[in-house]
Design a protein around this nucleic acid. Structure first.
Lengths: 161, 161
DNA sequence: CTACAATAATTTACTTGTGAACTACTTGTG
DNA sequence: CACAAGTAGTTCACAAGTAAATTATTGTAG
């Protein structure tokens, strides 16, 4: 009946009855579920051609019809620009993306998937979808939609910033 | 009205109408919200005595009355045992925890907080609570409880394993 | 024009995390 | 009781991440 966070909440409630713990039950579970999902994905990709963060780059590119610039990729993957450069260098050497300098503003470069990169992105994405829906089996379709909607309400103001 | 994941879903729906994308809206947002929360916490802790992963160790110890063994800490923080050893070494040198060998089974060691460690854990935890509740301002108390409950339903079977 | 701020991507120096040995100890089995 | 198998924690070699400096380019104010 109870998960790790229920126990955490009880412990803190006993320790510090003065604190308002209502938010930790939701956010704490978000953090924990994300960590577990990352773990699941990492092990699923151990023998894959790319790592999870590299896959996230490929996926971001696949869903963007005209490719993306590195700056946009760092924002979409919520990481540092240095990490993006490293991943792009690696993915370029693997023949999964191409970097072409922008002719209008030569500070910018355009990153696009190669055919092989696009194919791999879709292949790994379907696997990802499968793992995600497996995780959600305790919820019926209506509850999944509820969960998605509540999280959207939380994320909308942040994603705009 | 729409966040990043709504756009992601639309792009994939256009690209691959054959796939069932219902689970990505919930899990994708969980992953994204966790990444953003980590970012927020990291910047909040830049001038703190410990990093975010180190804080997670302190928090886990604070809510466990008798301390924990490294193995349990790696499970609670969802990371590798090597990472735990490094963090414990660092926290011990900083005078925030102590490692005492178990006399019954000398393979095991017991990790406990020092007084200063316990105080720091609580101090940082209240800050964490504040940031978390700030993130949830778009939801009213009833909706927060709904969100927490849905996530609990998802996590309960996984946390048992 | 020139100089100077702003922006994009990368490089550098360093920190942190990981999987795979390795050490130390305990337990179960013949 | 010996000894193979199992378990806990650590170490090691390396991979991946970051902040801050660097390079290259564009916009803008005088």
């Amino acid at each position: 009946m109870s998960d790790a966070l229920s126990r955490f909440r009880d412990s803190w409630a006993h320790l510090r009855p003065d604190l308002d713990l209502s938010s930790m039950e939701a956010i704490g579970r978000v953090l924990r579920l994300a960590a577990l999902m990352h773990h699941i994905t990492d092990t699923a990709l151990t023998d894959a051609e790319v790592t999870r963060p590299e896959f996230e780059v490929l996926a971001a590119l696949r869903r963007s019809p005209h490719g993306l610039r590195p700056r946009q990729l760092t924002r979409e993957t919520v990481s540092s620009s240095a990490a993006t450069t490293k991943r792009l260098t690696r993915l370029e050497q693997a023949g999964l993306i191409t970097r072409t300098p922008h002719h209008r503003d030569r500070r910018e470069i355009q990153v696009t998937l190669t055919d092989r990169g696009a194919q791999l992105a879709e292949e790994l994405f379907t696997g990802q979808l499968q793992r995600e829906s497996e995780l959600l089996t305790p919820l019926d379709p209506d509850e999944r939609a509820q969960l998605a909607h509540l999280l959207q309400r939380v994320l909308t103001p942040i994603d705009r910033a």
